[in-house]
Simulated assay, not measured.
Amino acid sequence: MVRYPSDSLDLPHMRVSYGEKLVSSSPVDSGDLDEASLADGWLPLFSQWLVDASEYVASDGGRIAEPNAMVLGTVDDEGFPATRTVLCKGADERGVVFFTNYESTKAQHISVNPFVSATFPWIALARQIHVRGRVEKVSDEETLEYWRTRPRGSQLGAWASHQSEPIESRELLLGALDRMAARFHDVDEVPVPPFWGGFRIHPKSVEFWQGRRNRLHNRLRCELGDGGCIVRVTRVQP
């Protein structure tokens, strides 16, 4: 019988004990999530949890890497789902924004099935947020505004990469980056590639998850109407 490194892991007994105060340096309140937390809509609580994740410091001084990371789920034209981690780069009453190559696999999926999910997995804080909704491209003006905040190297990388397409070696990819650096050497502001931009998820539902003892987690699901207003909050069993 072939043995693998994972065979030495006790997977059935791997678990986190939720419901305790995390660490003294944590900004997170240990009180229970309840319906009153959503009295002003989904966005204030979403924003506060995002701030908490960005400010969290563990007892050993560690922080949450990329607290704005979310797992984006799409479905292709054959009904197969796919997930990957992207970065949330905007959130307001209209929804949640991310940026990507418009020729990537995720963008191809969106072109045939414009409904997605996104999960913010803040496990260290015993929190998650799940967003589901319709997605559409943001305006060129919004794309340009965000593009100008990106480091030059990231801008050149966007030009160099044919995202999701096969490539024979990393050396070829780095060579493409060098060519883009030479192409825009005398340009003060690298332009936005015509194949690159943002998407906005317009939430149909937003669920807040809070880890609690005995796996009896708190789950509050918001169903949203026009304009992102909450029309119903449902407590869901874990």
Rank of each mutant, 00 (worst) to 15 (best):
G95Y: 05
R15C: 09
L174Q: 13
I167G: 00
Y56A: 14
A53Y: 14
E223N: 12
A124W: 07
R170W: 12
P27M: 07
A160C: 08
S59Q: 14
C229S: 15
R148Q: 14
W147Y: 05
D60F: 09
V233H: 02
Y4G: 05
T105R: 15
E78C: 01
K89C: 01
D178E: 15
T100F: 08
G175I: 03
L220S: 02
P5D: 04
M1G: 15
L144C: 00
G228E: 05
A158C: 05
A160I: 11
E142Q: 12
V75T: 12
P203A: 06
V96H: 04
V96N: 03
D188Q: 11
R183W: 12
P44Q: 03
S17C: 06
I230K: 03
Y4E: 14
G211P: 00
I110C: 05
P5W: 07
L224P: 06
V96Y: 02
I201L: 14
A36F: 10
H217E: 04
S164F: 03
S111Q: 13
G79C: 03
H185W: 08
A160D: 00
S6F: 08
P5L: 06
T143D: 12
W122H: 08
L33V: 12
A36Y: 02
L87Y: 10
K204W: 07
W49P: 00
L220M: 04
T83Y: 01
V96W: 06
H130S: 13
P238I: 07
A53S: 13
V192D: 02
L38Y: 01
S139H: 06
G19Q: 08
V86A: 13
G157T: 03
Q108C: 11
S117R: 07
E66V: 15
A69W: 05
T105I: 13
W196L: 01
V190Y: 10
P238L: 04
E168N: 07
A182W: 00
E145D: 11
T85I: 15
I64R: 13
R213A: 15
Q155M: 09
E165P: 00
Q163L: 00
L22I: 15
F80C: 06
A107F: 10
V97D: 15
